[in-house]
Computed example of a mutant assay.
Amino acid sequence: MKPTFGLVTVLLFVILSPPHTATSQERLPLFSSKSKIKLVQLCVDHIYNMEFDEARVLYKEIKIALPGHPALDMLDAFFISWQEMPFNVHSPGYKDHIAKLEAVIEKSQKILKEDADNEEGIFFEMSARGLLAEYYADEGSYMKAISEAKQTYDFIKKGFELTDKNPEFLFTVGLYNYFRETYPERHPIYKPFLWFFKSGDKELGLKQLDQACRQGVLTKVEANLYTSYIYLRYENNPETALKYLRRLNKDYPKNPFFQTKLAEALVMNGRYKEVSPLADELLANSDAYYRMSANLFLGIIEEKKAANLADATYYYQKALSESATFEFKGEYYKSLAYLGLGRIFRSQGNSDLADGQFNLAIEWATTEEVEKEAKGYLKH
């Protein structure tokens, strides 16, 4: 499910930034204007709910209100990523997305050349570079990722001093505290390069993220999404993830990405009856990724609840068939489908076929839990 850390955060911090009464409108054309901030807020809400036509109407108004502003390029990047969710470095719009982030940096630097302390220039350059660092890491461009992260870090440190004054900063600080420790555990190649960055605290990070989910005003969507992701994929605690995902689906019922994650958490919690209406919607989606996820969840239900191995086999294989129509996304769901098939074939006495599925589960695994289970079966 790996969401794009930071992109929506950027826009939400723009929205939440209070008007600066002591600063001229000319110097801070966005942060000092409640009406412009509200426009951005409404635009983002429509994008979250997959109402792109409505969002583009508001975008036109923002473009008139903020000509040449880096916020426009950041919104463009936001449009690209949510229209292609789950978005990653292999998505069709990735190069255009990166170009928009580079445009954010270029325009921000022009602002900072005239005023080195300009908050909007600092904010947008920091945000774009943080996103580039994440993408370069996903690409495997390690040195480029570290370079961008270092340029972002000085700005992030200021957030540690602001959490008591503004609960919205709990989100970014919480993410930093958690992933500063967790990311190098999952990706050891980065450990030698992280001496530059202040140590984090996973437990404190989780507490701060939960506070952000409850106390944040406009960061609450991203806070709920990222916190649920942590509990689903890092902490192996789907019960806790469920409360965050219910909030998102209530507020943005048209978002199939949120529906998929809610269905995942429900299945992992054994709340199978609640999955059916979500699965029906996902099966009707034109995107094969969502159909794949629905078939996977139905396969798990047939295997775990109904013990109907024939139907479970059908759904698992259907999920993998759907996944064959796209590349570079849904790896976790593929690993679960192969793992399920391996269990079924093992129960039927077909060890050779089962082992082949377990090896494929390991090949596609993105979590330690899947890899551990598959390797456990291979040892017996």
Rank of each mutant, 00 (worst) to 15 (best):
residue 154 D to E: 09
residue 195 W to H: 14
residue 204 L to R: 14
residue 159 G to M: 03
residue 166 N to P: 01
residue 194 L to W: 08
residue 149 A to Q: 06
residue 164 D to W: 10
residue 210 D to C: 06
residue 180 R to H: 10
residue 216 G to T: 12
residue 155 F to P: 01
residue 180 R to E: 02
residue 160 F to K: 11
residue 217 V to M: 01
residue 169 F to C: 05
residue 129 R to L: 14
residue 144 K to D: 15
residue 180 R to D: 10
residue 218 L to P: 00
residue 226 Y to F: 09
residue 218 L to H: 09
residue 217 V to A: 09
residue 229 Y to A: 08
residue 227 T to R: 07
residue 142 Y to W: 10
residue 157 K to R: 15
residue 217 V to Y: 00
residue 159 G to A: 06
residue 153 Y to W: 15
residue 185 E to T: 10
residue 167 P to D: 02
residue 130 G to R: 12
residue 160 F to L: 06
residue 224 N to V: 04
residue 133 A to I: 07
residue 223 A to S: 09
residue 240 T to I: 13
residue 241 A to G: 06
residue 145 A to T: 04
residue 169 F to M: 05
residue 220 K to T: 04
residue 156 I to M: 12
residue 151 Q to K: 13
residue 243 K to H: 08
residue 211 Q to H: 07
residue 181 E to V: 10
residue 198 K to A: 14
residue 134 E to A: 12
residue 217 V to H: 01
residue 207 K to W: 00
residue 212 A to Y: 01
residue 211 Q to P: 01
residue 165 K to D: 14
residue 168 E to M: 06
residue 218 L to T: 05
residue 138 D to L: 15
residue 201 D to V: 03
residue 146 I to L: 13
residue 168 E to N: 02
residue 128 A to H: 13
residue 192 P to L: 06
residue 177 N to S: 00
residue 196 F to G: 04
residue 193 F to M: 15
residue 212 A to E: 00
residue 225 L to P: 02
residue 205 G to M: 03
residue 149 A to K: 03
residue 186 R to W: 04
residue 215 Q to R: 14
